[in-house]
């Protein structure tokens, strides 16, 4: 789940300055779950824009806004999209980019949300950062607790000196990730995994923009960083 939060109304209105009419996109997957881009939020956004003299030509709630084919379908079927001066997207950055890439080059596409992180959903409305998408999963050695994600410093070889009674120095309400890793590995009889010195992480596979092509005939155009 991608977690998003709403931008301030003022920032959205600033970004829409000069646009007399706007079409809205939400997202029925993550943003709907975050209460940032579902049906209710689209209605609220419509009301806000109209209060501020901006005409809303229509809105759409694709099943998954980061899926290009859904967006292409919306553009084909909805004349109100083309008649709008700008498009406002209540979805994560990937959703905004998907809409922006499908929209005509001349049409401004504006984000209504800030994208925060990839979460595990503890229960509805309770999200915890789940994965830093670092490109090199270490969870096998860390008892399923991620030092990249759950340690504010992303340390790979154990806790910093800031642990106080097992708690993190940055968020003192949060148990130290490395104390948890230690306890869990000890429980599993696998503490030897924490004893080995983990070398500096390779960022060679994280050169942006990252892309993946599953079809073999497309795969050969993916450039890999050369290894020495």
């Amino acid at each position: 789940m991608i977690i998003t939060k709403k931008k301030a109304a003022k920032d959205i209105l600033d970004a829409l300055k000069g646009s007399k009419s706007v079409f809205l996109f939400g997202c029925d997957t993550c943003a709907e779950q975050c209460s940032t881009g579902g049906k209710k939020e689209l209605d609220e956004m419509k009301a806000l824009l109209e209060e501020n003299g901006i005409k809303v030509t229509g809105s759409s709630l694709p099943e998954v806004t980061c899926y290009r084919q859904y967006i292409v379908k919306e553009f084909k079927g909805r004349g109100e999209i083309a008649s709008a001066d700008a498009l406002l997207v209540l979805a994560c950055g990937a959703g905004v980019r998907t809409v922006a890439d499908v929209a005509p080059e001349a049409t401004p596409v504006i984000p209504a949300l800030d994208s925060l992180y990839l979460a595990t959903v503890e229960r509805f409305g309770r999200f915890l950062e789940g994965c830093a998408m670092c490109g090199e999963c270490v969870l096998a050695d860390t008892g399923g607790i991620c030092p990249h994600t759950e340690c504010p410093k992303g340390l790979l070889n154990g806790p910093c000196g800031g642990v106080a009674d097992g708690m993190c120095e940055v968020d003192t309400a949060q148990p130290c990730a490395w104390v948890r890793i230690y306890n869990r590995l000890k429980e599993q009889g696998r503490l030897h995994l924490m004893k080995k010195v983990r070398p500096p992480k390779s960022h060679a596979n994280n050169v942006k923009p990252r892309k993946t092509f599953l079809r073999s005939y497309e795969r050969e155009i993916v450039k890999k960083p050369e290894k020495k």
Partner: peptide, 18 residues
């Protein structure tokens, strides 16, 4: 650096040795 009064000391001990 090492924190001899770290609580708990177990993880700190491992890091000291590393």
């Amino acid at each position: 650096v090492v924190a001899p009064e770290a609580n708990p000391f177990g993880p700190e001990e491992l890091k000291f040795e590393k």
